[in-house]
Design a protein around this nucleic acid. Structure first.
Lengths: 271, 271
DNA sequence: CGCTAGGTTGAATACGCTCAAAGATCGTGG
DNA sequence: CCACGATCTTTGAGCGTATTCAACCTAGCG
């Protein structure tokens, strides 16, 4: 057994699912692990754009890995307003707690046409118990999601519209950068302004004015489907943005060595 | 081996740590499991009130289980304002992702004098890999935390000050009720108004006025250290509060049976 | 008794909201 | 090929919720 780690160059291949690329970046994977992760990508299909495919209160029957496109988690309120909690980008898992939480407490919808890999929630239990390293990587994913949502609370709770917007754009930029979906300081952005408004807890009109102000201040350049960050340093300063809540990577090797019975003793290399 | 499940009456004992009571309520535990959880409570100590004991950016060296008192996770901004992300009540775990996330992205402080049990983050790996049921319960805890923070985003993003406040008070009430720290419709509340303000993203002055309005409307009765909810139904209606994001419990037995090699085949009973 | 922390209230201001209407862009069908 | 509808964006005007600043009150503690 004991196949060698997948070398980086192989993983630059765009056909490798983004979740695996992400994991491999955090902690180099061996073939056995990659196979286990590939099994999660067996059942792939598309979801049309602008489709609500999980409804608040639904029974949690499956999990999804986003492989292409954008989606978001939200809650609708009785007065017709909507709050977006977070976005799902390629490599993110939708409903990561489905094994243990019987019903969704939120809804999920696609923004763009979406490609997702669907897998049974129970598969995660198998993964965590049989593949400790993948279990830790899964934990890392959850911890990162938690940071993102926590940051969203701070953004919406205590920042001005202007700072909020700057902060969100930086976050999206960095998340996309990690999955190699940026170009220089730009990224393609399928979000109509009402998505941004519902994310940041602003009215559509005020969202528009805030973006205008950012444009006037020569900080961003927003065309219909692309955002260019003209002055990232300035934006970071305005937003008090600290990238590291997304970029944290821990050396998992030592943890794994101490807690694994056998079969994963290959080279303990880390990013 | 194979000891019988702990019967409920034994767990009414207040000396049993609240985390174990909570887990046992979700999924009856056997003695082996209780022992494993008790090991997490070996190293117990107190933290003074109003003490910041984890700072934004600190290296994640330990985890805590709150056994008595209240704490909170927050972020400070440069303009002097503070956003509270969530509260830690007895039975909650502080830094649940410490094994995989190297540094905190937030700060944590005590409100009251706090009793915590400190344990090594790595112990969680052992727990998850050797005790599948406890692993699932841990996952349930994380899923519930996620729901709470997600709900906080909605609260702060799209609700008026009045609704926000009603919603938060209901949430605290329900969380306390589960750990048996309520009396009828009242709970003791160590939160000065500035805590509520920093949780809900409001100024102190407006927080005060909002509470006054809730009092005038005969919905709550707030003395210095107790909150009485005078009309829970009305409050729920105002806040569009749905308790079930806290109360969800899944039948874990079947999942466990399918994924456990041996040693946990006792009575598959569920709440 | 005086200090400190928390709570309360008033007044002026501002940030963001609602209502309203008009422009821009794009796909589709006549 | 143009017209039409649909969706998204932009701008103006008036309003309202929540903020800031400031002062005073209250209770607890050394």
């Amino acid at each position: 057994m004991k196949s060698p780690n997948l070398i980086d160059s192989e993983l630059l291949n765009k056909d490798v699912p983004p979740l695996i690329r992400k994991f491999n970046f955090v902690q180099p994977l061996n073939m056995e692990e990659i196979k286990a992760l590939m099994k999660m990508h067996d059942n792939s299909h598309f979801i049309d754009e602008s489709t609500v495919f999980l409804n608040h209160g639904d029974v949690h029957k499956k999990c999804f890995i986003v492989t292409k496109g954008w989606a978001y988690r939200f809650n609708d309120l009785s007065n017709g307003s909507r709050q977006i909690i977070n976005f799902y980008l390629p490599g993110d898992i939708i409903s990561p707690f489905a094994v243990v939480i019987p019903r969704t407490t939120y809804s999920v919808a696609s923004i763009t046409r979406l490609e997702v890999s669907e897998f049974k929630p129970e598969y995660l239990v198998e993964l965590v118990t049989t593949q400790p390293k993948l279990g830790l990587l899964y934990g890392w994913l959850l911890g990162r999601d938690d940071s993102i949502v926590a940051e969203q609370v701070v953004r919406v709770g205590r920042r001005s519209a202007y700072k909020r917007t700057a902060h969100l754009l930086l976050e999206l930029f960095h998340r996309l950068k990690i999955i190699d979906e940026t170009e220089n300081n730009a990224f393609s952005m399928p979000l109509a302004q009402h998505f941004l408004a519902d994310t940041l807890g602003l009215s559509l009109v005020h969202m528009n004015r805030t973006l205008k102000k950012l444009r006037m201040d020569k900080l961003i350049n927003a065309t219909s489907n692309e955002i260019i960050l003209l002055d990232i340093d300035k934006l970071k300063e305005i937003a008090e943005y600290e990238a590291y809540y997304l970029e944290q990577i821990k050396n998992l090797s030592t943890i794994i060595e101490n807690h694994t019975a056998s079969n994963n003793q290959q080279t303990p290399n880390v990013a």
